Simulated assay, not measured.
Amino acid sequence: MYAEAQEAGDAVARQFQANADLVDDLVDRLRQRPPRFIVTCARGSSDHAATYGKYLFETQLGLVTASASPSVGSVYAVKPQLQDALFVAVSQSGKSPDLVRNAEIAKAAGAHVVALVNVTDSPLAQIADTVLGLHAGPETSVAATKSYLCSLAALLQLTARWSHEARLFDAVHALPDALREASRQDWSALVDGLVDARNLFVIGRGLGLGAAQEAALKFKETCGLHAEAFSSAEVKHGPMAIVGPGFPVLAFAQDDGTGDGTVAVAREFRQRGAPVWLAAPGIHGGDSLPLARSLHPAMTPLITVASFYKAVNALSVARGHNPDLPPHLNKVTETV
């Protein structure tokens, strides 16, 4: 897991180069026939990437983006009205039967199906109208790391070219080096603080919510540590009642309009006696966790997660677990 996470910068650079023409062709099509809305479909870490994609598409393109429940198509056999939609399926393996079935339904309904997959000859890729390979290379650790970051990077590259927003172009260009720098950040304070923990919250908001979801999953699968992810807004609607002395919180703040609110929630929890670690651009010292430089809020979740992966791998080992082989899990999960 550690070695694969460290490869993310190189993998993203490889992906950007390999997919440039494909993304431009897709963007030309989308400009000629603009979709009415976007639908994402994914599970696990890929669904956390899709959460990021939702906020990215809605904030940068102004296109309403919804998450499809795979069971609606695969179990309930419902065929949603997806004519003139962009259907984005995200899957490292491209083999899960429910995702494949939903892509078939979307295509038959008149949606343009885009597959973000690491295995470009997979069943999902064979159905898609456009295949954007993740180019992460082999990933043998059960816990996805570089393939998750490559999924986010593919969404970022597509959005930058579609939007023609100069700062997003700059972020895409800078991302590989930023990921390499992120993997060198020292988050040992988080590792030391969670060695004996049993529960925690991970909070984020907006573009950073998917990163919080991904972190909570990694705590569970690699560390045997129960973690729940919440929006820093939603956590105030009930869940925060259990936060107090001894209840740890990891907060991911964004360098956008959601950032102040997340920092304020972290501060409130710290005042209650909860151990709090905050990763926020521009905030240093105390219990804050260092971040590599971000050129755009859409870039921030990627460098945050890259630093987190190094820390959670170390925490897994410190807690006596094998981060590469979590119990009861397989690399490819095939749900129907």
Rank of each mutant, 00 (worst) to 15 (best):
R270G: 13
G261N: 05
T40N: 13
A111Q: 04
L175K: 09
E268H: 08
S307T: 14
F16Q: 11
P239T: 12
A174Y: 04
F308H: 01
A89I: 06
A251F: 06
Q254C: 11
D121C: 04
A197V: 05
D84K: 14
Y2T: 09
S67A: 15
I38G: 01
Q83S: 14
L158N: 03
Q271V: 02
K146R: 14
S141F: 04
S74E: 05
L149F: 02
H284P: 06
L63G: 01
R101Y: 12
P301N: 07
A279I: 10
G259V: 08
A13C: 06
A153R: 07
T304N: 09
A211S: 05
Q60H: 13
L63Y: 06
G244M: 08
A109L: 06
K331M: 02
G257C: 09
A314N: 14
A153P: 00
Q60R: 15
Y148N: 08
R31E: 10
R167S: 14
L56A: 04
V39N: 10
G62C: 07
F247W: 10
R198N: 13
P80N: 02
P301Y: 04
Y76G: 11
G133M: 07
Q185C: 08
G9M: 11
Y76D: 13
T40Q: 08
T304W: 09
D98H: 02
G206V: 07
A241P: 01
A215S: 12
E268R: 08
L289T: 11
L289Y: 05
L56K: 03
Q17M: 03
R43W: 05
D255M: 03
G238N: 06
V202A: 11
T145A: 05
G282R: 14
